[in-house]
């Protein structure tokens, strides 16, 4: 099964990298960008076919390692 964990910064946490990207887009003439926040995507291959079990496993992975929940939120999805 293919799965994806998306980690994003919590609202209110300053994201200097996102700000730099935002500035670069503006200087490239890409118009209409209001703001940029940088995050991470993990594509994970799961053994077995039990989607509920996979979701629990992904949550465990995110809580234990993939996200630092002090500053980050995460979303897990089993893509199938």
């Amino acid at each position: 099964m293919k799965a994806r964990v998306t980690v994003t910064l919590k609202t209110g946490i300053l994201d200097p990298q996102g700000k730099a990207i935002e500035g670069a887009l503006r200087s490239l003439g890409v118009e209409g960008v209001a703001s940029v926040r940088q995050g991470k995507v993990f594509d994970i291959e799961i053994e077995g076919t039990d989607a509920a079990k996979a979701e629990a496993l992904l949550k465990q992975a995110a809580d234990k390692l993939l996200a630092n929940t002090v500053i980050e939120n995460y979303r897990v999805e089993v893509v199938g």
């Binding site: 946490i13 300053l14 200097p16 990298q17 730099a20 630092n68 002090v70 500053i71």
Partner: peptide, 16 residues
């Protein structure tokens, strides 16, 4: 901090 022995986190320097 990552081990939970101290609170908080160290982010990228503000000036990058």
């Amino acid at each position: 901090c990552e081990a939970g022995l101290l609170p908080g986190v160290l982010m990228r320097n503000a000036q990058l």
